[in-house]
Write a protein that binds this DNA or RNA. Sequence first.
DNA 1: GCCAGCCTCGCTATTTTTGGGGAGGGTATA
DNA 2: TATACCCTCCCCAAAAATAGCGAGGCTGGC
Lengths: 237, 237
Amino acid sequence: MTLQTESLLDSIQAAETLEAFQTATEDLRDALAVKHVVYHWVNSIGERFGAGTYSSDWVDRYLEKDYLRLDPVIFGCFQRFTPVNWKQLDWSSKGAKAMFLDALDYGLGNQGYTIPIRGPNGQFALFTLNADMDDDKWDAFIDKHGRELVLLGHEFNRKALEFEQGKETVAAPTLSPREQAAMTAMAKGYSRAQAAADLGISEHTLRVYIEAARHKLGALNTTHAVARALSSGLIIV
Amino acid sequence: MTLQTESLLDSIQAAETLEAFQTATEDLRDALAVKHVVYHWVNSIGERFGAGTYSSDWVDRYLEKDYLRLDPVIFGCFQRFTPVNWKQLDWSSKGAKAMFLDALDYGLGNQGYTIPIRGPNGQFALFTLNADMDDDKWDAFIDKHGRELVLLGHEFNRKALEFEQGKETVAAPTLSPREQAAMTAMAKGYSRAQAAADLGISEHTLRVYIEAARHKLGALNTTHAVARALSSGLIIV
DNA sequence: GCCAGCCTCGCTATTTTTGGGGAGGGTATA
DNA sequence: TATACCCTCCCCAAAAATAGCGAGGCTGGC
């Protein structure tokens, strides 16, 4: 790891504001001499958070044309665990080709490398480098920096999660052991009768736990409670 | 990054057999002069895969006593994105304390550092270092190697996924858009009537989606289906 | 053209879950 | 020694989910 990478990691870690976060992507772009560096995160509700050096024109264009749905990069990253080199993806579909040409028009380079990053609760983020060079140079570049990029991507993600969590500060409730067990049994698909038998208690007692958990979790029904318990990491199936 | 780390990464990457994978954990243990190095993976269906230097006695003990359910390390990693230093966890519960002492009896060191790793389809893996040293030394150790450990953990995970995919893993079912929407609505705690109204369809139609998703997911009831969809990463709430 | 898969809607009846109301004993913490 | 929280059990009535039987139209691939 070069000293440069170390100091970039430190500067990301030290970022206290979104501006500093944004600056870090720009610094990284300059340090690596690439065209673009982008960190980007989307959840199911459509909330997004991101920073990077793409022009706002391109971002708008991307959203307007709903490229998210046909972008081979997104698709590839969803399926893989490992980083994706754009040129190894399948760009054969008509929509994908059009998108690629469009991207070049909007100032993107022809080469790209995107690292998928996953976090708790199904969080999914992308860390992308984009540059303009021929294949050989690009391969050498990736070969040289690939591992450090993984670290940088994770550091961006860690910081992004920090910003997001700072917004909400929802105190996660705690479940008593029996409540946990009850929720776990529900998550396993047991009926109340089965679950009660499994725990060696009466069905009525089991119900009390489920209701307690429901209330603690602020859930509307059992399914909701299980969903919340799961995505808060309170239970593991 | 030290040359040593580079060569370890390369040796993991080069591993062709489970034996080589196992050897890599042992090499890493020796290189870092720690007591244990463990890579461990569990998916939503409960399939397991792991390699490491824990004694089989301890692994058996862990499973037998169902420590998975009360291990603060597991709990901490599920909730966090970042690595966890064992000593910063909450070991105050009786069960956790007993487990910790038990672990020492079985040859584990008093310090630990575990990196959570997440992949596609809700895959969740842990990469753990365990050692016997005082707090100051351990902190210095983590400070020095933390970032490289993230890389090593990911490399182990990449390799593990390779092995798993080689043996034809259980194909994760795919949900149609409407089925996804129905599952998401259920996970949000909507009643069928509410969910149907939300999707602008009849309650009966909604039911068809829910049942289809249940069958695809091999679930016993709606709660079970939602739990599976969530932990497979098919839906995000 | 056919088949598979998706999307949409209807009916009836049974089983299960939920929402209220209770009660008593235990343990731990303040 | 209170107070809080956890564990356990019970009844009743209403709401919701499940199981089974149907139907037709649409798309996209072989």
